[in-house]
């Protein structure tokens, strides 16, 4: 932070602290009646680990407009090719997290395969690329079976724009990444040492019903979201 901005920051901090102090004085004689509930899970949880998570995920995801493609470790790349052809996509952003269960070499292998199949894959994440790409292929940080949600986070080599700007988003989910319920995902986050700056729980293609209640997809984000669900 440069010098000319440190002064407003200090005064902002002082104003905040003064308000909290005043509030504390005001609430001093006020007796708090509501305690913070500790047991949330047994009330809130809808899906448990022993449920059939891939089936549950597929049902929930399909009902919110995601297209789920079951795949195996040997055919997932073929499926991606089919999806891209279906949308006439040529330029494709490939953004696979090296930490994902797909493995470190997956991005290179997929890139080579797509090039061989006549697509134009790129790992560039600059504005020009993201705004003009026909599709993006990304890994996910997790997926939630309860709601059919895929989770994309920011991080080194992970642009927020990849799952947002191109009109088609293909997410690769390993069944091992499925968590049963939102409770599980947020518990996982709470136990994490530091959170990524940006986490997106994506539950369907970008949509609106602002015009006479008619459902239209692809407002700002992708119009089509495909999930390639890879079982071991």
């Amino acid at each position: 932070m440069n010098a000319d901005r440190s002064e407003p920051r200090a005064s902002a901090r002082a104003a905040m602290a003064a308000f909290i102090d005043a509030l504390r004085r005001r609430l001093r004689d006020f007796e708090s009646r509501a305690s913070l509930p500790q047991e949330l899970e047994q009330t809130v949880r809808q899906v448990v680990a022993s449920d059939d998570l891939p089936t549950r995920f597929t049902q929930a995801a399909t009902s919110v407009g995601l297209e789920v493609h079951p795949a195996s470790p040997t055919d997932w790349m073929d499926l991606i090719g089919d999806i891209l052809r279906k949308h006439d996509a040529h330029s494709v952003v490939v953004q696979l997290d090296t930490d994902s269960p797909l493995g470190k070499r997956a991005a290179t292998e997929l890139g080579n395969r797509l090039t061989a199949d006549g697509f134009a894959p790129t790992t560039a994440l600059d504005d020009e690329t993201l705004f003009s790409a026909d599709a993006a292929i990304t890994s996910v940080a997790a997926a939630i079976a309860e709601t059919g949600t895929i989770v994309c986070t920011s991080g080194p080599g992970l642009a927020r724009g990849a799952s947002l700007l191109p009109p088609v988003h293909v997410a690769i989910v390993q069944t091992s990444q499925l968590v049963p319920d939102q409770c599980d995902y947020f518990d996982q986050l709470a136990g994490q040492a530091g959170l990524p700056a940006n986490i997106n729980l994506i539950t369907g293609p970008s949509k609106t019903a602002d015009i006479e209640g008619i459902l239209v997809t692809g407002v700002h984000g992708p119009r089509h979201v495909h999930v390639v669900l890879v079982s071991p």
């Binding site: 919110v64 709601t147 992970l158 700056a197």
Partner: peptide
Amino acid sequence: GQPLTVYTTLVTGPKRVDDPDG
């Protein structure tokens, strides 16, 4: 009547040094 909004975005601080965008 949706189970979740399409995007539930969790923002924790500005872009990190290694983040490509944000």
